[in-house]
């Protein structure tokens, strides 16, 4: 009925905006760079959302997997001399393989134990990168990571081309996330988040499903990490730090955990927010920390979740009005 702002149109508008954005800021490398970084982090946060938001398992090793992706690309291209695309593919595979093994062990633990276990595994990855000088360059980091190799006539030397490259992967990631969430597999994950006991009695192999969900989640992180390495061309152990995973978590919570648009909204909002507060970088957390606490207490489903709740309230109020109109019609009894 002439609703212009339905979901599909909003999505098309957003994609169009993302596509023309570089034309508006064609000569502003800084803006494009921030946008691109934001997209990369968004991909990673989508991965986190699949595991924490839909399957209900909070893994604090996510930055560790992001780092594994980044360092895989870094090491394979600088020391192995591999083509970027091959390195990126291998990076995702390496991340998945590591995720599979670690997930197999970590998922034997539950709730709090799982969170603590993964926090420590994440820290272990950080320590490993920090100390393994020969492979990772230790605290000095990896420098001189090459830009992606050209595909035919397309080169990736300009900020704009990197922007489009990352945008492509972001759209791909969102597409995959949407497909998963709206599938029987997605329903299975939600059932596990809701109650593992109930899910089991419904014949769901929770161990297997959690593991698959874990691997998808780290695949997103690995992909994001690999792109990050190619974009910044320098990586240090910091990409694996706990602060990194806390940031991802913050983007997810504020945007809306367990919602499909939450990762995008939360990440992009914070990325720009952080840019505005750049001169106070040390003290970001004076504001962000309390925001995080405030959100989980009062808006546990984040900005997008809160928005949907309002919408639902509005709709059910409307429905109730309709119900009053037809109240004279006898309602079928609920009893047999």
């Amino acid at each position: 009925m002439g609703k212009i702002f339905n979901q599909r149109n909003i999505i098309i508008l957003l994609i169009l905006f993302a596509l023309v954005f570089p034309l508006i800021y064609a000569d502003n490398r800084y803006v494009l760079h921030v946008m691109t970084i934001g997209f990369i982090f968004t991909i990673s946060v989508y991965g986190m959302n699949i595991l924490a938001g839909y399957t209900g398992q909070l893994s604090l090793a996510h930055a560790g997997f992001f780092a594994i992706g980044a360092y895989s690309v870094g090491i394979l291209t600088t020391q192995g001399g591999l083509n970027f695309w091959l390195a990126l593919l291998l990076a995702v595979l390496i991340t998945c393989a590591t995720g599979f093994v670690l997930g197999l062990i970590a998922l034997r633990t539950k709730t709090h134990f799982f969170a603590i276990y993964t926090l420590i595994v994440g820290y272990l990855i950080y320590l490993l990168i920090d100390k393994w000088d020969g492979l990772t360059g230790g605290i000095r980091g990896l420098i001189g990571i090459p830009i992606p190799d050209p595909i035919g006539p397309i080169t990736f030397e300009s900020a704009t081309s990197m922007y489009y490259l990352v945008l492509f992967f972001l759209l791909l990631a969102i597409f995959v996330a949407v497909r998963i969430v709206h599938s029987l597999t997605g329903r299975t994950y939600i059932a596990i988040r809701n109650s593992e006991d109930l899910a089991q009695t419904l014949g769901i192999n929770t161990t297997m499903n959690k593991l698959v969900s874990f691997v998808i989640s780290v695949a997103f992180a690995g992909l994001a990490g690999g792109l990050y390495a190619a974009l910044t061309r320098f990586i240090g152990p910091d990409v694996a730090s706990t602060h990194m995973v806390f940031n991802f978590l913050m983007y997810l919570i504020v945007g809306g955990i367990g919602t499909l648009s939450g990762p995008l909204v939360g990440t992009m909002l914070f990325i720009w927010f952080e840019q505005f507060l750049k001169s106070y970088q040390e003290y970001h957390m004076l504001i962000f920390g309390p925001i995080l606490v405030f959100m989980v207490i009062f808006f546990p489903s984040g900005i997008t979740g809160g928005f949907y709740k309002l919408k639902m309230k509005f709709q059910s109020a409307k429905n109730q009005k309709n119900v009053r109109h037809i109240k004279s019609i006898p309602v079928k009894s609920t009893k047999e």
Partner: peptide, 14 residues
Amino acid sequence: PIHDKIAAIGLVLF
């Protein structure tokens, strides 16, 4: 259970 962990993380950062 996820929420109090996140709140605790917010406190640390702050």
